[in-house]
Design a protein around this nucleic acid. Sequence first.
DNA 1: TAGCCCTACTTGTTCAGACCAGTTCAGTTT
DNA 2: AAACTGAACTGGTCTGAACAAGTAGGGCTA
Lengths: 268, 268
Amino acid sequence: MIDFESNIPYYVQLTSALKERIRLSRWEPGKKIPGEMDLCQEAGVSRTVVRQALRELELGGLIVRRKGKGAFVSEPKINESLVQELTGSFQDMAERGLPSSTRVLHQRVVPCTDKVARYLNVSPGTRVVDIDRLRFVGKAPIQLVNSYVPFDLCPALANVDLTNRSMYEFLEQECGLWISRGRRYLEAVAANEVEARLLEIDKGTPLVCLDSISYLENGTAIEYYHALHRGDRSRFEVELLRTRAQSQGLNSAEADIEKLPQIDANFR
Amino acid sequence: MIDFESNIPYYVQLTSALKERIRLSRWEPGKKIPGEMDLCQEAGVSRTVVRQALRELELGGLIVRRKGKGAFVSEPKINESLVQELTGSFQDMAERGLPSSTRVLHQRVVPCTDKVARYLNVSPGTRVVDIDRLRFVGKAPIQLVNSYVPFDLCPALANVDLTNRSMYEFLEQECGLWISRGRRYLEAVAANEVEARLLEIDKGTPLVCLDSISYLENGTAIEYYHALHRGDRSRFEVELLRTRAQSQGLNSAEADIEKLPQIDANFR
DNA sequence: TAGCCCTACTTGTTCAGACCAGTTCAGTTT
DNA sequence: AAACTGAACTGGTCTGAACAAGTAGGGCTA
């Protein structure tokens, strides 16, 4: 169960192993999972490690723990790919089995504008890799993404083909750039003419405008992007958690999915 | 600094104390905070407690920790009220000092529809408290909220005056119902006639449609709401964190604020 | 001087053990 | 039969200690 020779921390290994069991539905939602002491024995590690792993699962929304009773697989089952990723929605869609594709509109190195500079926290005019992409689910264009990455942080990005590849995956695997935090802003806007043409919708149609800034562990801004999603084909999901410490640790993720049946509230 | 007689866990007290120091800007963004051992001495607790408190702060996005160097107040400073709350945006606005008010349109006990029943995970027809509210910032109507709470979980809710009070606050303080998790869905929609009239905008104007389900610690769904926010006056913010365990702990919150200056990306 | 290594300091991971506080349930008392 | 008691479970909090691993700086060597 745990490779004691590996340099991967035990609790990370345990977390993965338990997550796997839950994902494969060996444990049904609502089912009690083994007690902490049982897991200690089974995995051959101390309670510290087991508790740290369980904490990760709790933060990931996979389990609920209750004093005096035990830990249980979360009832309202969370789609793991949602909680999992800080990555873009492209991966989410791919994981759902929806055929998705990307068309790269621009990919160039340019001096950044003042506004992008402010978001990336660099001097205006600093060279950035500017990549504009149009993304499809099936044959329908769904989102228009305009992303910026400081050139010096990853020169290789200027020439890589992102048609069938996630930028996050590239940054992480090829450049060793680990994204640890991010902030996203969402609002609703109306499509202008250019946007309408690209997304094959009428001018004025509601769009979700998403601005995102991602940071490395040391606080360096690694990427800023501005994305427009078709409102009638996109839905964003956020998962929140509160801990007893009032301040709560929270939990979230985002995803695009085919629009679910609309809820008929009074006003709609 | 820490009340050893209190029944509040030391790490919770320490978390609050440190948070206070950061909030009051005794420590500037980017500044290194005292080492773990220093905090142990200062607070008179073990390293476990200090680390647990620092972990909370890290999850809350208030600090960044780096092996071998220390912990630092987050550079891109996070608005605390954002990270803080799983509560509604009403409190957020109030905390920002914007004059906000609420008009209760309906407040009644009704058998729930099939769709609401599905969201709340109860039998169709179960009695729910149905509260419809229109919320203002200044004199402008900003959001239209349609919320449902199972009547049996909190009968008192049927008669309380929520004009100047947050529902979450009421549920927590008066009913002892602690919300531990929630899930929210966002999309962009166009205002229909009724919505347009209530929000004092033109029909077809983009709105953010927000659906939310909140859960108690035991997994019981406590509230479902469907809200419509004026797209040109609302902006939602999500803060994400990833832990080394791949699976990430994340972090998020939401808020309404006066719309910030628009970013001019290529397409806007 | 340029480069290397050693040391001291930091956070990260792990251990073994202790006690507290809810939960459950069987057994006893009323 | 109903109510109380207490032991045996669970997860929650805390201690003190140890070693690993990244960082920074001083001092030595080439």
